[in-house]
Design a protein around this nucleic acid. Structure first.
Lengths: 211, 211
DNA sequence: ACCTGAACACCGTTCAAGT
DNA sequence: ACCTGAACACCGTTCAAGT
C-alpha cells in the first residue's frame, strides 16, 4: 500500500495521559478518516497517530480494530434512523408510496453526505463471523420500518394485498442498490436532482406495489 | 489480522522456473482463495506461496496487487455476461419482463456460486482512482443489456413509455441490492427457491414498468 | 524472460512493564 | 486506569542482482 506523507501530528509529551475521553476521540478521528479515504484503507495505527497516542492505547477501549469500526457503524445506523424518522415527520399524512420515497430521500442524503461511513456500514463484511449481532439487529430494524410503511399502504388500500416482508426486501434492495451506485460515483447526481431521480427510479418499484 | 497455519505448500527447488503460465496460475489460485475467504483478506504473498513462488515474481505479470484483482474481476464479468446470455437463449421468445427475470436468475446463480468473486466484482473500490476504465466499460455493457430488454418491452407494448435508461438503472439497483443481501447471508435461499423469490421481489419493479 | 536476496515502510496484536 | 517498550508475524513494493 505504501502510504506516505502521514500527518506529523503533535505527539503529547511521553508519559502524559490523554486528556479527555480517548474512546470518543478515537471514534471521531476514525469518522474523519472515513470521510477522507473510505473504510478499506483505515488503519488503527494511523488513527492513534492522529489522536496523538500510541496505537496500543486503543486496545483499552476496543477489543480490536473490527470492534472500533462496528461501533462507528452502529452509530451510523442510529443517525440514519434518526434522519429517516425526521424526514417522515416533516412530511406527515402522506400516502404510503410517498413515505417510502421519503425514507429513500433521507437514506440517499445520508449516503452522499457521509459516503465513507455509509460504505463502512454496508460494505466490508464487518460481521463475517457473526461476532456482532447488534449489526444484524439494527439492519433488521431498518427493514421493519419499511415493512411498517408497506403494511400501512396495504391497510389504506393504496397497495395491493402483497407479502409485506417480501415487498420490504424488494424496496430495501432497490434502495441500497441505488445508494451503492451513488456512493461508487456511477450515479453522479446530488441534492434535489438526486432526490427527484430516486423518486422516479424507486417509483417503479413502488408502482409495482400499488393496487 | 494474525493469520496462522498457512499452508506449507511445496516450494519448488530454488532457482528453478515456474513450469507453465505463472500468470494463469496466480489468477487461478487467487480465484480459489476468493472462494475460501472473500476479497478483503486476499494477499499477494499468500497467493504466491500457494503457487510455490516468491511473491515478487507476481510483479512480472501484474503491475501490482490491484491489477491482478481487476484482471480477475474482468474475467468474472465476462463469465457473468456469458451465463446471462445463455439463460436468455434457453428461454427465448419470452415477454420482456420474463427476460429481465431470466437475467436476474443468471446473476443470482453466479453470485451464489462464486460469492467471493462476485464480492470482488462489486465490492471494494477497485477502481477508486479510475485506473481501470475497463471495469467501468464492462459494467456499462451489463447495464446496456438490461436497457435493450426494456426497450424491447416498450416496443412490444408490454411496458409503458418510460425512460429506458432510468428503468434499467432501477432494475440494476434492485437486482444488485438483492444479490448483496444474498451474498451477505441475509437472504439464505438458494437454487430454485431463490429464483422464485427473486422473481417475486424483482417482479414488483417489473410490474412498475408495465403499461 | 523469469526469478530472488535484501530491504523499506507499513500493518494488527500480544505481553510485560511502567505511572 | 491508562499508557508504552519491545517484539512477532504479517503486509505491498522496490532495487539490484542472479540464471
Amino acid at each position: 500500500m505504501a502510504k506516505q506523507g502521514r500527518a506529523r501530528v503533535e505527539r503529547k509529551p511521553a508519559g502524559e495521559y490523554h486528556h479527555g475521553n480517548l474512546r470518543r476521540a478515537l471514534l471521531d478521528a476514525t469518522l474523519q478518516m472515513l470521510g477522507e479515504q473510505g473504510p478499506d484503507t483505515f488503519s488503527l495505527r494511523e488513527v492513534a497517530r492522529r489522536v496523538g497516542v500510541d496505537h496500543r492505547a486503543a486496545y483499552k477501549h476496543f477489543e480490536d480494530r473490527a470492534t472500533l469500526l462496528v461501533e462507528l457503524a452502529l452509530e451510523g445506523f442510529e443517525a440514519l434512523g434518526t434522519e429517516s424518522d425526521a424526514e417522515l415527520a416533516s412530511t406527515p399524512e402522506l400516502e404510503a408510496g410517498a413515505r417510502l420515497i421519503a425514507i429513500a430521500r433521507a437514506t440517499l442524503r445520508f449516503a452522499t453526505q457521509q459516503p465513507g461511513l455509509y460504505r463502512l456500514m454496508t460494505g466490508p463484511r464487518l460481521n463475517a463471523d457473526g461476532r456482532f449481532p447488534a449489526l444484524e439487529a439494527v439492519l433488521r430494524a431498518r427493514m421493519q420500518r419499511l415493512q411498517q410503511e408497506i403494511e400501512r399502504g396495504v391497510a389504506r388500500g393504496e397497495f395491493m394485498q402483497l407479502d409485506t416482508l417480501e415487498a420490504s426486501i424488494a424496496f430495501w434492495a432497490a434502495l441500497s442498490g441505488l445508494c451503492a451506485l451513488v456512493v461508487s460515483g456511477r450515479v453522479r447526481l446530488r441534492g434535489d436532482k438526486l432526490a427527484a431521480y430516486a423518486a422516479r427510479t424507486l417509483g417503479f418499484t413502488v408502482r409495482g406495489f400499488r393496487a
